[in-house]
């Protein structure tokens, strides 16, 4: 027992938290895969997966089994170390992003004072993994996808940051739990009411940062076959797949905490409100993906540099000005 007592309790807390996060992410990827396939199916006037289990509910498990069972294949002339590092690097930083996520009043792995900063910093590593994947696979489509990822993610991080800063300035904190505490239970007490423009900018950037349609240019199927993950088979592809869905959950979670009042809601506050809001946002992600065509690469950057960044800057300046005046 003395041996255990020597370990700082925070460490045990974090280890348990990380295990819980992994379970959470794993389950939610399965749920999201099912939700996406069903959502896509119903948007496309077909039932979606229907064969494995009642209403195809076991389909994600079958998918996972298939991916795990596939041969892992390294293309000739690829850099094997970097090639296999990329999918790992895609998943693990995303898991860290859940550490400061305020699921509920006490349900947070670790409250971090600079939680928002931590999320933004580790989200940047995701870009690195995509770039590595595209570059190391020695494939021209992969290379083009990697080049697209870099310019897209770098560009869209700026308005994202500016939008987040508005809330941070307004609430005077970078701690997500504190930001949630600062909002009320009723929708009109949420930050979305005071910062609607920042919310919209955040949402658009969220689509771009998670490489979701209509901004899925790094993996644009009709142009680049599969972009940066063209050469990945089996779980190599599966890890990118997982990272994409985990990223979506993170982005929706951050959005919920920042703008939609986090765990607070009419009636009893709690984790359920957080999850409901996160799932509403995820449904939006799915809905948009199966509805819109893909934008072109120059248009994507034009939207960012000509609209989002100036608007976000103006919004931030306005926020600062109002904070000073009142």
């Amino acid at each position: 027992m003395t041996f255990l007592a020597a370990i700082p309790s925070e460490l045990i807390h974090i280890v348990i938290g990380m295990v819980a996060i992994m379970a959470f992410v794993g389950i939610h990827v399965l749920v999201l895969v099912y939700a996406e396939r069903k959502g896509a199916g119903h948007i496309q006037r077909r039932p979606g997966p229907f064969e494995v289990g009642p209403h195809g509910i076991l389909q994600p498990l079958a998918d996972a089994g298939k991916l795990i069972g596939k041969q892992l294949f390294t293309p000739t002339n690829a850099d094997p170390i970097l090639f296999w590092m990329a999918p790992v690097l895609a998943v693990f930083p995303v898991l860290l992003l859940f550490v400061p996520m305020p699921f509920g009043p006490v349900v947070t792995v670790q409250e971090v004072n600079l939680g928002l900063l931590l999320i933004l910093a580790f989200a940047g590593i995701g870009v690195l993994s995509t770039m590595l994947a595209g570059w190391a696979s020695n494939n021209k489509f992969g290379l083009l996808g990697a080049a697209r990822t870099v310019s897209q993610s770098v560009a869209y991080e700026i308005p994202l940051l500016l939008a987040v800063l508005c809330i941070a300035f307004q609430k005077g904190s970078l701690n997500l739990s504190t930001i949630v505490e600062g909002q009320g239970s009723w929708p009109w007490q949420w930050n979305i009411v005071t910062q609607p423009l920042a919310f919209l900018i955040f949402l658009v950037c969220a689509f771009a940062e998670t490489n979701r349609a209509p901004f899925d240019l790094p993996e644009a199927e009709s142009e680049l076959t599969a972009g940066f993950h063209t050469e990945y088979s089996g779980m190599g592809f599966g890890m990118f797949f997982m990272a994409e869905y985990a990223n979506m959950v993170v982005v929706s979670g951050v959005c919920t905490a920042l703008f939609l009042g986090g765990w607070k809601g009419p009636g009893i506050d709690g984790v359920w409100w957080f999850m409901i809001k996160v799932y509403a946002l995820l449904a939006l992600f799915i809905w948009v993906r199966w509805t819109y065509p893909r934008v072109r690469f120059d248009q994507l950057l034009n939207i960012n540099w000509k609209w989002l960044i100036p608007l976000a800057t103006l919004n931030l300046l306005g926020t600062v000005f109002l904070m000073k005046v009142f």
Partner: peptide, 16 residues
């Protein structure tokens, strides 16, 4: 063609 442009759904309606 809409599939080429990244819109995945219209082909289902067209094929209907």
């Amino acid at each position: 063609f809409t599939l080429d442009l990244g819109a995945i759904t219209p082909i289902m309606y067209a094929f209907d």
